[in-house]
Simulated scan of single mutants.
Amino acid sequence: MSDAPDPPRRLEWPWNENGLEEEPGDVVDPEGHWLPDSGERAPEFDPLTFDSVFRDERRWAPQHGVAGRSDSALPGAFLFPEPHIPGLPVDDAEDQAVEAAPAMAASHHRTSTLLRELVETGLLAILVFLSVRASVQHYRVEGLSMDPTLEDGEFLLVNSLVYSEVDLEKVGKWVPFWDPGEPGVRHVFHGPERGDIVILHQRVGVERDLVKRIIGIPGDVLEIQRGTVFIDGRELKEPYIQSPWSSDLAPIRIPSGKYFVMGDNRNGSHDSRSFGLVDEKDIVGKAMASWWPRSAWGLAPNEEPVLGAAP
């Protein structure tokens, strides 16, 4: 017993180009893929050939959107979402969320980037501040011992790292097959030099730090005759002195790690002539710049005095 086959169903096109629902027309198969022109059932596919399996367009079901077949639709299961047609209202909450997702993602990315940059900038500013604070200190000049080079009440920026030392003997113990040589302790940049204006920690009987100029360095034989300084028998020419000292000082040899300091106001300065040589550990740092008052703004007057001709 056999039943007659059902008549072919006509394709339904529920939407026209204006987006309005209308009654489908008499078009049965506009592309000619499903039914032959006679309206009879299409012949069976030949499953044994490649073309009949993969290339025959009758196996491709047309993909339809609200406005008919989309040019971007692909046959098979891997289909991209249909693009939104301008002019049609988007009433579905899911469609609205899909459209708003890229904007929300971009806004979240900008916010995250801004917060990260603010945190990085803040950490960098703190690091720079701590580094500067550890290497640069400020001092206020009190008194007239450096007159006329430095005024009473003048503010100085002092570099406290320029005379830093490193113990290479300790480092050599951790580095195999390396002999640092002599001396074992060396300066990272350079040691105190003649003519440097330095800040000293308080000495015995002095209640505050002092600001002086280095006159004699280790290895010098220093002598003062009628206010004139001689180093190894050579006169030290000091253009920053306006009121020279009139007394004498017997020759002394400055040992390693010691320095002879004096104020530029030789007649009103409490310095190495009274309290003796200064240990390098008592030197806080080197004056780098003056920042107040405005008239004294600029680099600190670190002048290297010139030695005269040998006798």
Rank of each mutant, 00 (worst) to 15 (best):
G216E: 03
L236C: 11
E235H: 15
W245S: 01
R253L: 07
Y259K: 14
P251F: 13
Y259S: 08
K212A: 08
F230T: 05
D209L: 06
I254E: 05
I252W: 12
Q242C: 12
K212H: 09
G257N: 11
R226G: 04
D209N: 12
D248V: 13
S256H: 13
G257S: 10
E238M: 14
R213Y: 07
D232M: 01
K237I: 14
I224G: 00
R253M: 12
Q225L: 10
I231P: 00
L222M: 07
V229L: 03
V229Y: 00
S246L: 12
P255M: 09
I224D: 01
S247D: 07
I241T: 07
A250V: 01
K237Q: 11
I254F: 08
Q225A: 06
I252Y: 12
R226K: 14
F260R: 11
S243Q: 05
I217M: 03
P251K: 03
E223M: 02
G219L: 13
V261Q: 03
I214K: 01
F260G: 02
I231V: 13
D232P: 03
V229C: 02
S246P: 12
L210H: 10
G257D: 14
W245R: 08
I214F: 03
I214D: 04
Q242R: 12
I241A: 03
P255N: 12
Q225H: 13
V261K: 04
I231S: 01
R213P: 00
R208C: 12
I252P: 01
G219K: 06
W245Y: 13
R208D: 15
Y240E: 10
K258W: 15
I217R: 04
R234E: 01
V211N: 02
A250N: 00
L210R: 11
V229I: 11
K237P: 00
Y259D: 10
V211E: 05
G227W: 02
R234N: 04
G216M: 08
P218R: 05
G263W: 07
K212R: 13
Q225D: 04
T228R: 06
W245G: 04
A250I: 00
V211M: 08
M262D: 09
S243P: 00
G216R: 02
I217G: 01
G219Q: 10
R213V: 15
S246D: 09
W245I: 11
V261C: 05
E235N: 13
P244L: 14
I215Q: 04
I214C: 07
D248E: 09
K237M: 11
P255W: 15
L236T: 10
I231M: 00
R234Y: 14
V261L: 06
Q225C: 08
R208L: 14
R213K: 07
I254R: 05
E235G: 14
Q242W: 14
D248N: 15
Y259F: 09
G233W: 11
I215C: 01
D209K: 09
R253G: 06
Y259W: 08
V261Y: 00
D220Q: 08
K258R: 10
K212L: 11
G227R: 01
Y240W: 10
M262V: 12
P218M: 13
Q242N: 09
I215W: 02
K258L: 11
P244F: 15
R226I: 05
P251R: 08
